[in-house]
Design a protein around this nucleic acid. Structure first.
Lengths: 242, 242
DNA sequence: GGGCCATTGACACACTTCGTTACACTTCTT
DNA sequence: AAGAAGTGTAACGAAGTGTGTCAATGGCCC
């Protein structure tokens, strides 16, 4: 089970803030609050926030400005609160890149539904920071067992194959996302965090080296398959062996 | 350049449908329309739809029901249209898993902004084009078994025939729609999401290559039949082997 | 059945993407 | 500091895919 999602509620009205925080917390979310954009920026630095609920109309820096900033610097989803049913505001909000908005006065149940909807979408993204469950020490796939602690592959005959750092990272990246087609860009981002250069073939190379170690017949790969024009995919089930 | 996103507009009012289709098409989207949930289901099989704009109130099967079905069988994003500002409808819609909703009467510009917003979120996901039922691991047809996970074709004698990416995509497209006549345009859309060029022969070529692998006598195809002037069709029953 | 046209099948070829090897550069060890 | 292992870059051949062409075939009209 994932930890409870962390929501940041930003509104200059204390009542709304507290009411909302209480309601959301009661429904299984972790909630922080902020009374201004400045406070919000502080809170965002201090904690890993999964979603921001953001009032547009606030004294000082307004919500749209903060939203724009968020969109430029992170992928954190944003739901806007707009006091008036001002169509323009709503459209501008969406065009800026907010994930959703709710017009005041709103039904808390509706806001909760929207939060869950946005979180569901966000969590289906391949997340680079997604760690494996701490308990998971070994992963089984095909005929292999990956010992995560020892960074070692164990074959069916018990023979251990050592993996280099890059090979290990690439393999765990695949094991966390079985059957998902991952582009070279994504793989590069997920394994080393860097963006691709032009004509970057390093992932191809890594895949080639990894295949040489895990494939029965590297000429006809059965575990890591190539998707022409798309990337690579792990064609195997993954078993967690705690 | 990515192909233009493909939108399906579902509404029982012809005027709204046509107006909307025209407006969206003018803004660079490919648009199909359907006048009922039944038509919509048909259209969803016939084309690779990137997003559905769906009226809730329709005679026959209503929008919520279709939305629920969509959410259970695919990840295709849905934007709901609701005639009344009925809060209950909107909330139920979101809880069912719609990605957004718009209340009638609406500003086309707002709908467009929402469509783009939802598409932007959806497109950061690696798009699973070959969305078979989740449980479906293997499909049997004629004398063959397609191992969907391994992207491999297994013959009656147990011999595995490797498929290229395009061949695999083409074959799964047929297997999902047995006995259905698919035009070249549809096949191109369903396999690669792109629209046809003039005198586009790539599908013919792919069919030819696939036949060479699966037909007992490629000169007299028995599995993938040609429908003169219409396209191709899979002339075989498909068995799901979980 | 015969002539005509559009559609289709097959093939060759161009182009893109991918696999592999060799090699240079970096990092870590000794 | 020298060596070893790991990793990225470049290059070349192989495989996959789309395009263009021509011949074969099916439908249509007579």
């Amino acid at each position: 089970m994932d930890p409870a999602p962390h929501i940041l509620v930003v509104d200059d009205h204390r009542e709304i803030r507290d009411l909302l925080a209480k309601y959301l917390a009661k429904n299984g979310l972790r909630v922080d609050t902020a009374g201004s954009s400045a406070e919000a920026r502080q809170a965002l630095k201090a904690a890993a926030v999964d979603l921001v609920v953001l009032d547009i109309m606030m004294p000082g820096e307004d919500g749209l400005s903060l939203c724009r900033h968020l969109r430029e610097t992170s992928d954190t989803p944003v739901i806007l609160l707009t006091a008036m049913a001002e169509e323009t505001d709503r459209i501008v909000g969406l065009e800026i890149g907010a994930d959703d908005y709710v017009t005041k006065p709103f039904n808390p149940r509706e806001l909760l539904a929207r939060i869950k909807s946005v979180l569901r979408r966000a969590s289906s993204l391949p997340r680079p920071r997604d760690q494996l469950e701490p308990a998971t020490r070994r992963l089984g796939f095909d005929r292999w067992t990956l010992d995560v602690d020892r960074r070692e592959l164990v074959g069916p005959d018990g023979v251990a194959v050592p993996l280099s750092t890059a090979e290990f990272r690439l393999l765990t990246t695949f094991l966390k996302r079985p059957r998902m087609v991952l582009s070279r860009d994504q793989l590069l981002d997920l394994t080393s965090g860097r963006a691709a250069e032009v004509y970057d073939r390093s992932i191809d190379n890594q895949v080639s080296r990894l295949r040489r170690k895990i494939e029965a017949d590297p000429k006809a790969p059965a575990i890591i398959k190539t998707v022409w024009g798309g990337g690579y995919t792990l064609a195997a089930d993954v078993r967690e062996l705690p």
